[in-house]
């Protein structure tokens, strides 16, 4: 378990829980045509660490998140997960993706499958787990995120908040080493944001390694060990949440925070 009270004393770039490096990006560059979306990004995330990535839109934070399970390819640099470099397409890559949970902004639940089928599909088809066990695990996970009573419904019958919690359960069902959240609350109505954030906070409390792209500063303050601020495809600044929000060092971070924290 992560001791949340001790994080303040630990330097921002170090590991908050003494874990070894789990996700390491080294000199990552990516272009979309002429647009240089990631510029020499170096980032190390340790086991058990919760890293929140923030920044203005178009700063490359979503792209960064998607490169980690290779939904986006990179041009140069290396990404290693648990000591292994990211494989190219093929079975190796599929196996790696099974270890990296991903939660999308638009949920992306399988529209023709029930909630429970969404959660059991990965374990059964990608990991070869038997159906009964996958079902039991799936129901336990749906229980945990509070949507077990919706197990037989299709995703479209659920609210956005419920869908996103199912999506988290679906990712957890693969028993991932690290969870990526790509703006998980940005498509939600305001009253549903907290139900999703609560699940994420409890997940963080259980020691899950998480990389979270979000605009939810409250979540960053409550659950993150480290805030990474991106702008123009670069990591401009990283610090513990309290330090970052109260005393940002760079002008770009100050400018960004002044725009979002005025209310």
């Amino acid at each position: 378990m992560v001791d949340r009270t001790s994080t303040a004393a630990i330097p921002a770039t170090g590991s908050p829980v003494g874990g070894e490096p789990l996700v390491v990006l080294d000199g990552v560059n990516k272009h979309f045509g002429a647009l240089h979306v990631l510029r020499d990004v170096d980032l190390t995330v340790h086991r058990g660490e919760v890293v929140v990535v923030i920044g203005p839109s178009g700063s490359g934070k979503s792209t960064l998140c998607r490169t980690i399970n290779r939904l986006e390819t990179i041009d140069t640099g290396t990404i290693t997960i648990d000591g292994k470099p990211l494989p190219a397409e093929g079975k190796e890559l599929a196996r790696l993706r099974a270890d990296v949970g991903m939660v999308f902004q638009s949920f992306n639940l399988f529209a023709h499958k029930t909630v429970l089928e969404n959660v059991t599909l990965g374990p059964v088809k990608a990991k070869g787990m038997n159906r009964a066990q996958a079902r039991d695990n799936g129901m336990a996970l749906l229980e945990r995120v509070g949507v077990a009573n919706q197990a037989g419904k299709l995703p479209a019958q659920l609210s956005g908040g419920q869908q996103q919690r199912v999506a988290i359960a679906r990712a957890l069902a693969m028993n991932p080493k690290v969870m990526l959240f790509d703006e998980p609350t940005s498509a939600l109505d305001p009253e549903m944001i907290n139900e999703v954030l609560d699940v994420m906070v409890s997940l963080a409390g259980e020691g899950m390694t998480m990389i979270v792209v979000t605009h939810e500063m409250g979540f960053a303050r409550r659950a993150a060990h480290r805030v990474v601020f991106m702008d123009g495809g670069q990591i401009v600044e990283q610090a513990q949440p309290e330090t970052f929000f109260t005393a940002p060092r760079s002008d770009r971070a100050k400018d960004f925070l002044s725009k979002i924290l005025t209310h």
Partner: peptide
């Protein structure tokens, strides 16, 4: 939607299982 295929790939399904399922 392209997100359906991305979600399938993200849980570790290869091309053929993604297409079939």
């Amino acid at each position: 939607p392209v997100g359906q295929a991305e979600a399938a790939r993200a849980i570790g399904l290869g091309f053929l299982p993604t297409a079939r399922l």
